[in-house]
Design a protein around this nucleic acid. Structure first.
Lengths: 144, 144
DNA sequence: CCTTGTTAGTTACATTTTCAACTACTACCT
DNA sequence: AGGTAGTAGTTGAAAATGTAACTAACAAGG
């Protein structure tokens, strides 16, 4: 029997940390706007980067196209985003935030920023810098 | 419009890192043993810590009791674990790995250890130490 | 013993996610 | 032009998860 502990297993600890740190923020977009995590992510991408197609959101957010498709459908039905056909290639649709979508994004991204600061406050500046650098590398890696 | 980027939002980056780093290991327990993540975690706890009740696994793994209940049911049906009634209090059931369960645990925990080393190898010893420390703190936090 | 409260674990149902087609459109090749 | 292949996005069924209600067992006070 090996003595390798789950608490030493990065995928496990990353998952626990991700879950724990998500709980509080999840309440915000859930309670205030009735959004799911997928929807909040789509909203955020459009708010931060402007007009995008669903495919572009898939690529940037590492989300499967069915997830994005359903998130977009729900966000549209709640008037947070609007679709617009692309003349040159009618397979694409440009997605944009509506006024309501922009307002929700402004509210939630400010809350996210504040929450991030609160999370980061428990570390020293050096720790925080290294943590963010390591996480970025782990998150980006296409294949280990 | 705020300039706060999702890539600076710890819950998001943690989630991406967790997902990315889980993919490769997931293949192992899925393809070799047909397990789900919940099942692998239950197996791991029993393999690492010996006999436990479902409740104890819930507490240690931060898993909801329905998840554990279902994971145990599936693992039992595949003969990876065995239940044993507790005489003193018949609400409890002691859970143990069978021979097959122990073999699966030995195989998978060795693979996990090797995979963890591979992940950690992309960081310097200092980075790795700080990363693990920060993650442990983030994962443990009961309420931010 | 009987009531009330608590705990371990399961089950049922609604919500989400995943997987595999499927439609509609564009691109390329001859 | 016509055939083949590829891409963007949607849909439906199956799998997994979350929530809440449930059963069975214990505990403690009267």
């Amino acid at each position: 029997m090996s003595d390798f502990d789950l608490r030493d297993f990065l995928p496990y600890v990353l998952n626990m940390a991700a879950e724990q740190s998500s709980i509080e923020f999840q309440k915000l977009y859930k309670d205030r706007y009735g959004m799911l995590r997928t929807e909040w992510r789509v909203l955020f991408h459009l708010g931060r980067y402007g007009t995008l197609t669903a495919k572009e959101i898939c690529d940037r957010a590492n989300m499967h196209k069915t997830k994005v498709s359903r998130a977009v459908a729900r966000l549209e039905s709640r008037r947070f985003i609007a679709r617009q056909e692309v003349e040159e290639d009618r397979r694409h649709e440009r997605l944009d935030l509506t006024k309501a979508g922009q307002a929700a994004y402004a509210d939630l991204s400010a809350a996210a920023q504040a929450f991030d600061a609160k999370l980061a406050a428990q570390f020293s500046p050096e720790e925080e810098a290294i943590l963010r650098r390591c996480l970025t590398r782990l998150a980006a890696l296409p294949k280990v």
